[in-house]
Amino acid sequence: ATNIVGKVKWYNSTKNAGFIEQDNGGKDVFVHKSAVDAAGLHSLEEGQDVIFDLEEKQGKAYAVNLRIK
Rank of each mutant, 00 (worst) to 15 (best):
A1P: 10
T2K: 14
T2P: 06
T2Q: 12
T2F: 14
N3P: 05
I4Y: 07
I4S: 06
V5R: 14
V5W: 11
V5Q: 13
G6K: 00
G6L: 02
K7A: 04
V8N: 01
V8D: 01
V8I: 10
V8M: 03
V8G: 01
K9A: 03
Y11W: 13
Y11E: 01
Y11L: 10
N12P: 02
N12R: 08
N12I: 07
N12F: 07
S13N: 11
S13Q: 12
T14A: 13
T14F: 14
K15P: 02
K15L: 15
K15W: 14
N16K: 15
N16P: 03
A17K: 09
A17F: 15
G18F: 06
G18V: 03
F19E: 07
F19S: 05
F19R: 08
F19L: 11
E21H: 10
E21T: 15
Q22N: 07
D23H: 14
D23A: 15
D23F: 15
G25Q: 07
G25S: 08
G25W: 06
G26I: 06
K27C: 10
K27H: 10
K27E: 10
K27I: 10
D28I: 11
D28P: 10
D28K: 09
V29G: 01
V29F: 05
F30G: 03
V31Y: 03
V31F: 11
H32M: 10
H32K: 07
H32E: 08
H32Y: 07
K33A: 09
K33Q: 11
K33Y: 08
K33G: 11
S34E: 08
A35H: 05
A35D: 04
V36S: 01
V36G: 01
V36C: 03
D37Q: 14
D37Y: 14
D37K: 13
D37I: 15
A38T: 07
A38L: 09
A38E: 08
A39I: 07
A39E: 02
A39H: 02
G40R: 07
L41S: 03
L41M: 08
L41A: 05
H42K: 13
H42V: 13
H42N: 12
S43Q: 11
S43K: 12
S43M: 11
S43L: 10
S43V: 11
L44N: 00
L44F: 05
L44S: 01
E46S: 15
E46M: 14
E46Y: 12
G47V: 02
G47N: 06
Q48W: 14
Q48C: 09
Q48I: 09
D49Q: 14
D49S: 14
D49F: 15
I51H: 04
I51N: 02
I51D: 02
I51V: 11
F52R: 00
F52V: 02
F52M: 02
D53C: 04
L54H: 02
L54D: 00
E55K: 11
E56N: 10
E56Y: 15
E56V: 15
K57I: 11
K57C: 13
K57M: 10
K57A: 10
K57S: 11
G59C: 07
G59W: 04
G59N: 08
G59A: 04
G59R: 04
G59P: 01
K60G: 06
K60P: 02
K60R: 14
A61N: 10
Y62L: 05
Y62F: 10
Y62S: 07
A63N: 01
V64G: 03
V64N: 03
V64A: 06
N65R: 08
N65I: 02
N65V: 02
L66R: 00
L66S: 00
R67Y: 05
I68D: 05
I68S: 06
I68M: 09
I68E: 05
K69H: 12
